[in-house]
Amino acid sequence: MEEVNQTSVAEFILAGLTENPELQLPLFLIFLAVYLITVVGNLGMIILILFSSQLHTPMYYLLSSLSFIDYCQSTVIIPKMLLNFMTEKNFISYPECIVQFYFFCVFVVAECHMLGAMAYDRFVAISNPLLYNVSMSFQVCLLMVAVVYGVGLLSATAHTVFLLRVFFCKADKINHYFCDLFSLLELSCSSTFINEVLGHSISAFNIIVPSMTIISSYIFIIVRILHIKSSGGRIKAFSTCSSHILAVALFFGSTTFMYLQPSSSSSMDQAKMSSVFYTIVVPMLNPVIYSLRNKEVKVALKRLLRKMFPQNKE
């Protein structure tokens, strides 16, 4: 008999972060505040870069792309998560679950490679400042952004095509706050060997390649910082670098814990807590780390605010 390639589960239930009723309201308020900060911070950064001519440089073009990715990634995950805190059972239909997984995969992979592209941009700026505008021209930036999104789309498409072949019939409760690959595969009653191999292989590529780019770039940057004669200059440069490295380490550390470990070595509850960092915390922190500590951004923000709210002097 020919096997029918369709799911017997019409909808799933998202378990969320916790089932403790006493924690539902506090967690709802916390994550609502986090989402609002993320939206305001990232959309604000995009608008600031768009309307500030002094920020029309390769570094800020890449930063605006990162802000867009962070905004989209948060919007794919958090609104449905907030609903989970306010309802007894958070239902999600099978098509909606697949769509959520697809776009989550697009943006989380794009973030991996965008962080790598931004580290490479800083490497070029420090290694060859005189030729920086030539090496990182608008065409080069556009190509880098296109490659970042291209890798995200290809990775998400590959995952989703093979996920659609999985037959779900065991249960309908996903032990997660969103539709993630390995939490979905736990519900399968058909073979998931190909999905697991593909999942670990694509994850390894999308984590290791940008990680190596970032590590190599920052090693070179730190070596150059050590050659700065002024101790004040070294401290300021290290302060900026350390905050960038912290955000990158938080993102890649949590994604590595989630996707590169054997599925039997950690529980899904631990994986849920790890995924909070790269799906929620890092998108909120990026605008602060990459922009609010930047003098050029502060100056541009003041100029934009003066244009928007001119002070009438009599």
Rank of each mutant, 00 (worst) to 15 (best):
Q6S: 10
S8M: 14
S8V: 06
A10Q: 12
A10H: 14
I13P: 04
A15I: 05
A15M: 14
L17C: 01
T18Y: 04
N20K: 11
P26E: 05
L43S: 05
G44A: 07
G44M: 06
G44I: 11
I47Q: 13
I49C: 03
P58W: 01
M59T: 10
M59L: 13
Y60A: 01
L63K: 10
S65D: 07
S67L: 08
D70K: 04
Y71A: 13
Y71V: 08
S74R: 02
I77W: 00
P79Y: 02
M86D: 06
I92K: 05
Y94V: 10
P95H: 08
Q100F: 10
F107E: 02
V108N: 05
V109P: 00
E111P: 07
M114F: 03
M114I: 15
A117P: 00
N128C: 09
Y132C: 06
N133F: 15
V140H: 04
V145G: 01
V145D: 00
A146K: 08
L153N: 06
S155D: 09
H159R: 10
L164P: 03
R165S: 11
F168I: 09
K170T: 08
K170F: 11
C179R: 00
C179K: 04
C179H: 06
D180C: 13
S183L: 03
L184S: 00
S190P: 07
T192P: 05
N195W: 03
A204M: 13
N206V: 13
P210E: 01
P210T: 12
Y218C: 09
I228N: 00
K229P: 01
S230W: 12
G232A: 08
G232W: 12
K236V: 01
A237L: 06
A237Q: 09
S239Y: 12
S242V: 06
S243N: 02
A247H: 05
V248K: 01
L250Y: 10
G253V: 09
T256S: 12
F257Y: 11
S264G: 10
S266I: 13
M268L: 14
A271E: 01
M273V: 04
S274E: 07
S275C: 12
S275A: 14
V276T: 13
F277L: 15
N286T: 09
P287D: 02
P287H: 06
V288P: 00
V288F: 06
Y290E: 00
N294P: 01
K298M: 07
K302F: 13
R306A: 12
R306E: 14
K307Y: 09
Q311K: 14
